[in-house]
């Protein structure tokens, strides 16, 4: 059981990073459905960087950058050129999928260099790692996982406790009012869309470099879309995003682990569970009415000052 939950934490991370990224994007008022594409771009650039340079830190930067560039395209089209957000996001997904296949084509089957694999090896945190059960599961992980925990904490503070975070929320809730109060609306949108895309890129890189240290096509397999649903489930809250990602991380590896747990169903059927569960979330969240669980007021509404 401990082994399963430890592996579940590893499966949590791609979802977590992507969910956090999309939370930033949506909090500032944009619905970017290109998460899947940005993750794929991050995955392929992260992998190719670590494959060519062997430097894991550089790989993370490249992955972040790749996701951020994808998000920048989205921001350019939807914020500046007022393009349709849904279709632009979908296009970003198709573009990112094609791009990762195109760039990664000659690397299929290649492995992450040994040294970099060691860099992402498990590290025990002193004291915390000695806590029975909880410590064994959560605090004997790789550095990337700890980065994930740190991101949750940082974003929680940023969104709820800092001035720029509150401004960002204002932009997402009521763009016109935020504009009137002197907040540079478009700048806020750009920054958060791009940063959110960078986090999605990191989530993809985790899949491409750590989860499976060998390049294969379409590593993301719908996790970007699950992340979009997790944002709703988490009520746009980073801490709840961690919990939600963990549950879905566990679900997503059930197919591989069911044998050792004494269950024997076709793996294809078990692999449906995360997708079915996502549908369930979407249906349930239709009925959410608590204030803090509601989406930002102006989510996905285009804003153009001249048309107020």
């Amino acid at each position: 059981m401990i082994d399963f939950l430890t592996a579940a934490v590893v499966a949590t991370m791609p979802l977590l990073f992507a969910t956090l990224g999309e939370i930033l994007t949506e909090k500032s008022g944009s619905l970017n459905l290109g998460v899947e594409g940005m993750m794929l771009m991050g995955a392929v650039f992260g992998f190719s960087t670590v494959y060519n340079t062997g430097n894991p830190f550089l790989a993370l930067c490249a992955a972040f950058l790749a996701g951020a560039v994808g998000a920048f395209i989205f921001a350019l089209i939807t914020v500046t050129f007022q393009g349709n957000q849904v279709v632009t996001g979908l296009t970003l997904t198709i573009f990112g999928a094609g791009f990762s296949r195109f760039v990664g084509d000659h690397m299929i089957g290649s492995s992450v260099p040994r040294a970099a694999q060691d860099f992402f090896g498990k590290v025990k945190i002193p004291l915390l790692g000695d806590i029975p059960f909880v410590g064994q599961i959560f605090f004997r992980q790789d550095v990337f996982v700890y980065l994930g925990y740190i991101m949750v904490a940082v974003l929680s503070v940023y969104i709820y406790k800092t001035r720029p975070g509150l401004n960002m929320k204002a932009v997402g809730e009521n763009t016109a009012a935020a504009d009137a109060s002197g907040i540079p609306v478009n700048l806020y949108k750009y920054l958060h869309i791009v940063a959110g895309g960078g986090l999605c890129g990191l989530g993809g890189a985790y899949l491409g470099i750590v989860s499976v240290p060998m390049w294969q096509e379409d590593v993301v397999t719908g996790r970007g879309w699950i992340a979009v649903a997790l944002v709703i489930l988490a009520g746009w809250n980073p801490i709840k995003a961690l919990v939600g990602s963990f549950v879905f991380g566990a679900l997503s590896i059930l197919g591989l682990w069911q044998g050792s747990m004494g269950i024997h169903i076709s793996q294809d059927i078990v692999n449906m569970f995360p997708y079915l569960a996502t549908i369930l979330i979407v249906i349930i969240s239709t009925h959410k009415n608590r204030k803090e669980d509601r989406p930002p007021g102006n989510l996905s509404d285009p804003y153009f000052r001249e048309e107020r």
């Binding site: 395209i73 350019l76 089209i77 500046t80 050129f81 007022q82 393009g83 349709n84 279709v87 632009t88 296009t91 970003l92 198709i94 573009f95 990112g96 999928a97 094609g98 791009f99 296949r101 195109f102 084509d105």
Partner: peptide, 19 residues
């Protein structure tokens, strides 16, 4: 997969051109 990339780029431009 180059085709997919080109498709994406075409649609990006057309989406932007709506403006």
């Amino acid at each position: 997969a180059l085709a997919q990339v080109v498709q994406g780029v075409i649609l990006f431009f057309v989406l932007g051109s709506d403006f």
